[in-house]
Design a protein around this nucleic acid. Structure first.
Lengths: 348, 348
DNA sequence: CTGAAAGCGCTTACAG
DNA sequence: CTGAAAGCGCTTACAG
C-alpha cells in the first residue's frame, strides 16, 4: 500500500478544468460530453488513481447495487458450492456482495446481522442458511422490518415468502426406489440431524417410497447421524441391531455413506452385494469411493445462481411497479447418479 | 418484505422532540444524554424500525468498518474453510465483509474487482486467492493504487508485502520423511498443477526429503495432476510406467490420494503394503477412506483468522501512526497425521 | 446535557 | 455540450 491522498470528484474536476458534474457524467458513461473532454478526464482519472466513492454514490442514488448473503457452515461442501454460484452470478450482474455467516446452523439470534445488512442498504437479501431447529422463528417479528426483497434457500414453504429449494423429498424417494429396483427389501436410513428440515424431508421421501412398495416402515429402521462420516461409527451398528437382516442403507448425505462403506468393509460386509448404499448430495469425490457411490446429485452452484435471479427479479419489479412481486417458490429437481455401491443385479 | 418508508435520523429526532445530534449520540452509545432522553429515543427507534445508514456514516467518518476479501475456487474445501475463518473473526470484531471471487484461479484481470473494493472504501483487503500462473503480475502496477492495508494468503514471499502462509515445503518434507521412516524407498509424487506456487513448494519439499536421504530424484518420478481424484486415473499409470518399482506415492492433496487408493485397489495393489500413500490438506473425510489416509493437515480456518488479525493490526497501526507498519510474513506449520495408508512397519 | 452549522463525496433536476 | 445549486443521511467540532 502507499499513503498518497485519495482524490475526490472535485479535485479531478479542477485538475481537468471542468465542473464535477462533467466528471460525474464521464464516470457514469453518460452522453452529453464531448469526446475530447471525455478522453481528457478519463486519462486524468487513471493518472490520479481516482476511485469514485460507492458510499457517496449509493447514498444519493438510494440504491447500493449490493446484495446481502446470509450463510452458515461454509466449511461444508454444500454451503460453499451455493455461495460459489451466488458470487458468480452476482458478479456477472455487476453487483457487490456483503457476506454474513451464522456462527451455528441453529443460530436464531439474527438481529445484529440483519441490522448490519439493512444499515448498508443492500438492495436485496439471500438467506442461504438452512432451516434448523427454530432458526426461522425470527420471521414472525423480524420480517416486518425488512424493506427489501429477500429470497430463502432450503426452507419449508411458507405463505408470502420467496423460496428456492431442491426437492429433498423426491430425491430421497428416487434413491429408495432405485434400491427397491435393485432387489433390496430391507432398506434402512441414516438421516441427518432431525432438527434440519432437509433431513426430515429426505427421511419422509425414503418412507414414502417404501410405503408405495408395500413395505412396512418402523421407527427402528432409521437412526440419525450428524452428517459426518464419524457419526456413522455409532449410528450404523445401532441401526443394524434395530433392523436385523438390513440389506441396504440410504444415508442423508455422501459423507455418512462413506462412513457406511468403510464400516461395512471392516465388518466383512461386501458393498453392494451384502449391503447396498446410496448417499445424497453428489460430491465430486463420491465417484472415487470404493466402491463408487450411488448418490442423489444436487447442483448447489445452480441453486445459488437461481437465488440471485429470483432476488434480482424482485428488485427490478419493486423498482418499476413500486410494490413487491407475488412471492414464488422455485423447486429444483435433484438427479439420481447410479454407481457401483447399489448395483447388485447387473454388472456395471 | 413490507413497503413502509425508511426513516432518517431527522425524522426520528422530530418524533422524539430532540435534535438529530442527540439521536446520533444515542445510536453511537455516547455519553452526555440523559437517561430519560436516551430511553425514549431507543424505544422510538425500535418502534419505527429505524436503521441508521452505514453509507452516510462511513462517508463522513471516513472509515467503513468493512474488509474486502478476494477468494477463488470457493467450491473447493480449502478456500471455503479459509473464508469460514475470515467471516468468523471479522464478525467477532464487528466488521462487515465485502466478498469477491475470481472467476478462475489463474485470473489476472483483477482491475474491476479491485475498483469495486476501493470504491466501497474498505478499510483493508485480504487476498485469499492462491498464487497461480502470473496472477500476481498486477502487483507491479496495481499495488500503487491501493491505499489500504492488504494481506496476501498462500503466496510466495515478496519484499514489502504482508503475507500469511502455510509452510508447504516443510509439510511435504515431513510427509516424505515419514514414508522413508516407514521403509519406503521408491517414493513418487503426484503434484498439483505446476503453475500453482503451492504445488511447486510441495514438490520441492518432497524432493528435499529424498535428497537428504541420499536418494536420487529424477523428473520421471513425478507427474502433475489437477487436484481432482479423477486426474489420477491418467497420472498414476503414467507415473508407474516412468518409475518402475515405485512403492509409495505422496500426492499434492487428499482428493488425489483418494484417487490413488482407489486405482491401486483396482490394480490389485494393497495399500499400504504394496503402495504407501500420503496426502496433503487434512480433509475430515480422509480418516474414512479405506484405508484411512495419512495426510499433512492444515488448519485453514486458523489461516483465515490469522489473516484477519494481520490486516486489522495494520489498520490500527495506520490510524495511530499515520503510516503503514512494516510488512511481515507469518508462516503457519502444518501437521503430519499418521493413519493406515502409510503404515507398513507396525500394526496401527 | 443539548443543538445549529458545516461538510463527507457524490447525483439529480434544472438552466443555459 | 456544460455548470451552479440542492440534497442524500449522517458525524464532527463548537457553542451554550
Amino acid at each position: 500500500m502507499n499513503i498518497t491522498k485519495r482524490y475526490t470528484i472535485k479535485q479531478v474536476a479542477r485538475a481537468a478544468g471542468v465542473s464535477s458534474q462533467t466528471v460525474s457524467r464521464v464516470i457514469n458513461d453518460q452522453r452529453d460530453v464531448s469526446d475530447e473532454t471525455r478522453a481528457h478526464i478519463q486519462q486524468l482519472i487513471r493518472k490520479l488513481g481516482y476511485h469514485p466513492s460507492a458510499l457517496a454514490r449509493s447514498l444519493i442514488r438510494r440504491r447500493s447495487d449490493t446484495l446481502g448473503v446470509v450463510t452458515a457452515g461454509l466449511r461444508f461442501n454444500g454451503p460453499s458450492r451455493t455461495l460459489n454460484g451466488i458470487t458468480s452470478r452476482v458478479d456477472e450482474l455487476g453487483y457487490a456482495l456483503l457476506l454474513k455467516e451464522l456462527p451455528r446452523f441453529d443460530s436464531g439470534h439474527i438481529d445484529p446481522l440483519l441490522q448490519t445488512l439493512l444499515a448498508w442498504r443492500v438492495d436485496g437479501i439471500i438467506w442461504a442458511a438452512p432451516e434448523v431447529g427454530d432458526n426461522r422463528a425470527w420471521l414472525e417479528q423480524g420480517l416486518a422490518t425488512i424493506h427489501v426483497p429477500i429470497v430463502f434457500l432450503n426452507m419449508e414453504s411458507r405463505p408470502g415468502l420467496s423460496i428456492v429449494n431442491y426437492d429433498n423429498f423426491q430425491g430421497a424417494r428416487q434413491a429408495t426406489r432405485h434400491l427397491l429396483d435393485q432387489g433390496y427389501r430391507r432398506i434402512g436410513h441414516i438421516s441427518g440431524p432431525l432438527d434440519w428440515w432437509e433431513s426430515r424431508q429426505r427421511r419422509a421421501g425414503w418412507q414414502q417410497a417404501l410405503a408405495e412398495a408395500g413395505i412396512e416402515v418402523q421407527d427402528a429402521h432409521t437412526v440419525a447421524g450428524d452428517w459426518s462420516a464419524s457419526s456413522v461409527e455409532a449410528a450404523l451398528p445401532r441401526l443394524q441391531r434395530q433392523y436385523p437382516g438390513m440389506d441396504a442403507v440410504f444415508t442423508g448425505n455422501d459423507q455418512m455413506a462413506l462412513g457406511v462403506i468403510k464400516l461395512a468393509g471392516k465388518q466383512g460386509l461386501t458393498v453392494p452385494d451384502a449391503l447396498g448404499v446410496v448417499g445424497f448430495d453428489g460430491l465430486a469425490e463420491a465417484a472415487y469411493y470404493w466402491p463408487a457411490l450411488t448418490t442423489i446429485s444436487q447442483d448447489q452452484y445452480l441453486l445459488g445462481c437461481t437465488a440471485v435471479e429470483q432476488v434480482m427479479q424482485a428488485i427490478e419489479y419493486l423498482r418499476e411497479e413500486g410494490a413487491p412481486p407475488t412471492p414464488q417458490t422455485v423447486v429444483l429437481q435433484p438427479e439420481l447418479v447410479v454407481r457401483s455401491s447399489s448395483l447388485r443385479l447387473t454388472a456395471e
